[in-house]
Design a binder for these strands. Sequence first.
DNA 1: CGTAGACCCTGCGCGC
DNA 2: TGCGCGCAGGGTCTAC
Length: 274
Amino acid sequence: MPELPEVEVLRLSLEPVLTGRLIERARVYDPRLREPIDRRRWCAAARGRRVVGLRRRAKYLLIDLEGPNSLVIHLGMSGRLTLVPSTAERERHEHVALMLEGQERLRLRDPRRFGLAFVTRSDALDDDRHFAHLGVEPLSDRFDGAYLRAAARGCRGPVKSFIMDARRVVGVGNIYASEALHRAGIHPTRSVARIAAARWDSLAHAIRAVLERAIEEGGTTLNDFANGLGESGYFQVSLAAYDREGEACGKCEASIRRIVMAGRSTYYCPGCQR
DNA sequence: CGTAGACCCTGCGCGC
DNA sequence: TGCGCGCAGGGTCTAC
């Protein structure tokens, strides 16, 4: 479900309602996620703490607590984090709940269990193995065409795989990879060894623009994405390539094609992507 | 070393 | 209406 924009939308929706809020206690109903939740550590870290802020790193959401720790949540493919009344019935696939002052609870639901929930030290993210290898944030000042070109030195392989590789740049998943390449006019199977400097600039620009636009529009709701208050996004109506097989390209009127790369659906325009 | 593929899991929509 | 199949927005590990 979520790529960088969806996690950022989630963060923006929850930050005003969680900041300053007391977590009375935590519950782990089902620890079975991609890695088992450390129930004792999670509950001990959360209980009786106030939230001081929310951050995002790559596709991870960090709930910073007073004291040394942060609660970290990754939504995987099917995770949803939602604020509900404390009296709301426990849902199927509800793994974790934070019981908040004011009769509400923050619920993590994840049917496919590809998500994560763990505790880390707030001030030393890079010491945590989940974050240690992550590359640059695409919305940061460090990210531009020169960075991409340098990161691609000595690499081969298709450009789509390259921009989805979190060791280079984080947050670009399967939807926004297709979208950014379409916007930049670059064919997804093109080798990174055969991309000129100017095209790296336009690709970096396209990645940034697509992600920013998606955040502004509340993320992409293809099936079930919703922010922390249960509201859907509407970037799906702005998708130029993804999930548009057979439709006319908005730039050149050729028909959008779907191919499979590394097992993932990939959409591009054969007319204007080279 | 890199890259390709399998794999982790459930739910949904589609075609028959 | 019911069933089986393919597919799904993430990431990691293994085998080449």
